[in-house]
Design a protein around this nucleic acid. Structure first.
Lengths: 222, 222
DNA sequence: TAACACCCTGAGGTATACCGTAAGGTATAG
DNA sequence: CTATACCTTACGGTATACCTCAGGGTGTTA
């Protein structure tokens, strides 16, 4: 079992709840931090003292308050912590359900497990820890399925996804056409893009392109 | 001290965290529910059994999953619970920080305390419970201040909030103008609405209204 | 009261998005 | 090869969004 575990999570009661779960797994040394910066300091200190953490459980989003912050998100913390201690195992514990975000997170960093906050979280967290001990990677149910689909998405679905992303990023129709021309996409003309946006609006039952973007975000497509 | 307390909260670890806080206050009978419908059933049962709850601590948003739901939000639960047991004290415990939403919540229902989830939540929760025992109303720090200003805010910031919501709901500029005319808002003309959207685009550094909606969602303004 | 700043509004023009149509291109089946 | 279906693209028209300007109202200050 893991010996030294660090929890980075700004919400107090979640902190306590996770601590309790870890206690049930007979983990003895549990440390909590409410700020990313504090968490990083603790990683550093433990590493230098020769008693490094072997697991970091971290949220992704941390609220801003009066304190100055260097690290503002779980991603930043993960990056900084792995720079110090590359073998540190990491469980991301977040409400984030947008599969695109999760996918790029997993592609960018070496994440041991992704556990979605929700009704099954304590169950999931325990399963994640056990999987990690066996050298496996763990994803919450649902996430795993979504990730499997992300890989098969054909170019056509990718097209729509990118299109929606570019819309959400503030590109105008003509700029999107230019971008698609650079990338040598099929259907790169302004006319085709207009048609595609139109189809998406029908598909998602959106009246305006603003609503289309809102729906796409809501469904986790972006 | 309260004797029978019901916690309605879908997130497992928060549930456990809150339970621990209540235990520290020597509250003996603590019951948890992960679904609003379950919470309501428990309120009913306890009331009929002559051992009603004297405090309900509830979240506002509950995730959808495979289960059918009648009550889908904390608001719905509050309404249903107070219909059964009007004297039931209620603490709302939520991440909601949009002051407009909170204000309308407090205006609509008889809420004993509003505690915002965050770093200070366990401290706040304890203070809220003590205040309630003394017959006072409690709001988290920050919320209280915001509420004091809300009457000024409600006509300025609320305006932007609603504007963004209507955009995300797929209304066109002219339809938004019509809506504002019905509601007798200030700045209800098409021209004013265009100006306001423009200001928001500058403020949020958005190139298009699609991006504006995306940013607003991302920041939790909608 | 007069001067000023500020906000709301309407009018008119330009840019962009939206929509329909038709021409050409490619792949498939017969 | 031919016919057909489907996709891509260009073009032109309409609707909507975007922008600028100016008039008029209100409140503040001198």
């Amino acid at each position: 079992m893991f010996k030294n575990v660090l929890i980075a999570e700004d919400q107090n009661s979640i902190n306590k709840g996770v601590e309790r779960i870890l206690t049930e797994l007979n983990i003895l040394n549990i440390v909590s931090a409410q700020y990313c910066d504090d968490a990083l300091l603790k990683v550093k200190a433990a590493f230098k003292a020769g008693k490094p953490f072997d697991l970091l459980i971290t949220d992704l989003s941390f609220k801003a308050d009066h304190r100055e912050r260097t690290l503002k998100s779980g991603e930043a913390l993960i990056e900084a912590a792995q720079a110090i201690q590359p073998d540190l195992k990491i469980i991301v514990f977040s409400v984030e359900h947008r599969i695109g975000k999760i996918k790029s997170l997993l592609d960018t960093y070496k994440i041991g497990a992704y556990v979605e906050k929700g009704r099954e979280e304590s169950h999931d967290l325990k399963k994640a820890i056990k999987a990690l001990l066996e050298g496996k990677i763990y994803y919450s149910y649902g996430i795993e399925q979504l990730l499997r689909n992300v890989d098969d998405i054909s170019q056509t679905d990718m097209y729509d996804e990118i299109l929606l992303q570019l819309l959400a990023k503030g590109l105008k129709r003509e700029q999107i056409a230019d971008y698609f021309k650079e990338q040598e996409f099929p259907a790169r003309s302004l006319s085709s893009i207009e048609k595609r946006i139109n189809k998406l609006k029908v598909l998602f039952d959106a009246n305006t392109s603003e609503q289309l973007v809102a729906i796409a975000i809501d469904r986790g497509l972006i």
